[in-house]
């Protein structure tokens, strides 16, 4: 049961591993960027797993709420809203660079690009 309560964090660790491996091992730029976004999403899972409270609900307090409702922790949610937007911003910029690299080199495979740069 103890381990089951930590299942979220194990998934977080696994996703981080998959993401990082995808970024570092793949030479294709788009594939690396997909890996990068998995890597970032894993961190979202870490934070959001912290917000859950047993028997809780989303932190929206209606004006006539009975006082004994348990709410989830709002702070990690706010932080992750921010982080999601950072993630898409980075991805968009990375993709734009990838498109320009394709136009300048004719490929988006890093090993080929390295070869071409070495010849220069």
């Amino acid at each position: 049961m103890q381990l089951l309560g930590l299942y979220n964090y194990f998934v977080f660790a696994t996703l981080l591993m998959v993401g990082l491996y995808c970024v570092l091992a793949r030479t294709n730029i788009i594939k690396s960027l997909i890996g990068l976004s998995i890597f970032q999403s894993a961190v979202f899972l870490l934070y959001i797993s912290m917000d859950k409270v047993d028997g809780g609900t989303a932190p929206i307090i209606p004006s006539d709420a009975p006082p004994d409702i348990i709410y989830a922790n709002p702070l990690p949610q706010v932080l992750i809203l921010t982080a999601i937007v950072v993630g898409i911003s980075t991805t968009a910029l990375g993709l734009a660079v990838a498109v320009r690299i394709r136009e300048a080199y004719g490929t988006i495979e890093e090993d080929k690009i390295q070869e071409m740069d070495r010849e220069q």
Partner: peptide
């Protein structure tokens, strides 16, 4: 959503 983070 299951983790009660509707906004996220």
């Amino acid at each position: 959503f299951v983790l009660d983070a509707a906004d996220v």
